[in-house]
């Protein structure tokens, strides 16, 4: 590898108290906050501009609250396994790390499968982003926003799963050579994963319940 050994990959910088990777991921998350903030800002603006009769509650529009609740619990559960996998690494238990980390990936997969099931049900009922609700004649912004928000969120989940898979299968070799650095990577992957969970915590009530 032609990259140099740069400082503060493992040891924290004396001024900031964090590693370069951690500062980097938080900067990335700050920009993600602005991305999802823009989406929510758009949501508020569009909803404020619409009369209430054109804006269904999620449940009126045909979203299943039980399924949504289930998926929320799945994602929260995956956050717990994620943080447990990091804690296992910190305690030096690679086996436990693999189990928890694998569970995180699995739960992420379950979330995406449930989401795909929800999408396909909507499609089979003739509900697409462009058409209205519920008789398909009344215009509505609702499903456009629903598909855009959940789609973008699902892309983030997918990205997290792919990165985590890489870390589990190939990245874990680093545990032998540089355990501290590997634990740092898992922490960073965890921060991203928790953020994706955090976004869903807002998406769920906004789309399904309000």
């Amino acid at each position: 590898m032609s990259t140099l050994d740069l400082p503060y990959q493992v040891e924290p910088h004396p001024l900031t108290g964090v590693t370069s990777g951690k500062l980097g991921i938080w900067l990335f998350l700050a920009s993600e906050v602005m991305l999802f903030g823009s989406l929510f800002s758009s949501y508020v603006l569009l909803r404020v501009g619409s009369p209430p009769e054109f804006w269904p509650l999620g449940i009126e529009a045909g979203l299943s609250v039980p399924i949504g609740t289930f998926n929320t619990l799945v994602l929260i559960g995956s956050s717990v396994t994620m943080v447990m996998s990091w804690a296992s690494l910190k305690m030096g238990n690679l086996g436990a790390f693999r189990r928890y980390f694998g569970a995180t990936i699995g739960l992420g997969g379950v979330f995406l499968l449930v989401k795909a099931f929800e999408y396909s049900t909507k499609f089979s009922h003739g509900i697409f982003p462009a058409v209205g609700w519920p008789e398909l004649t009344d215009p509505s912004m609702f499903y456009g926003l629903y598909f855009t928000f959940t789609g973008l969120h699902a892309l983030h989940v997918l990205l997290g799963i792919l990165v985590n898979l890489w870390l589990l299968i190939w990245g874990a070799a680093m545990w032998e050579t540089a355990p501290e650095r590997f634990a740092g990577r898992i922490e960073i992957a965890g921060l991203y994963w928790h953020f994706v969970d955090l976004v869903w915590i807002f998406l769920f009530p906004v789309l399904y319940l309000l």
Partner: peptide
């Protein structure tokens, strides 16, 4: 975010 919305408007037919 705006580009994603406009892509949805153009490709999928939403009306943001």
């Amino acid at each position: 975010a705006a580009a994603v919305f406009q892509l949805m408007d153009r490709l999928v037919g939403t009306s943001f």
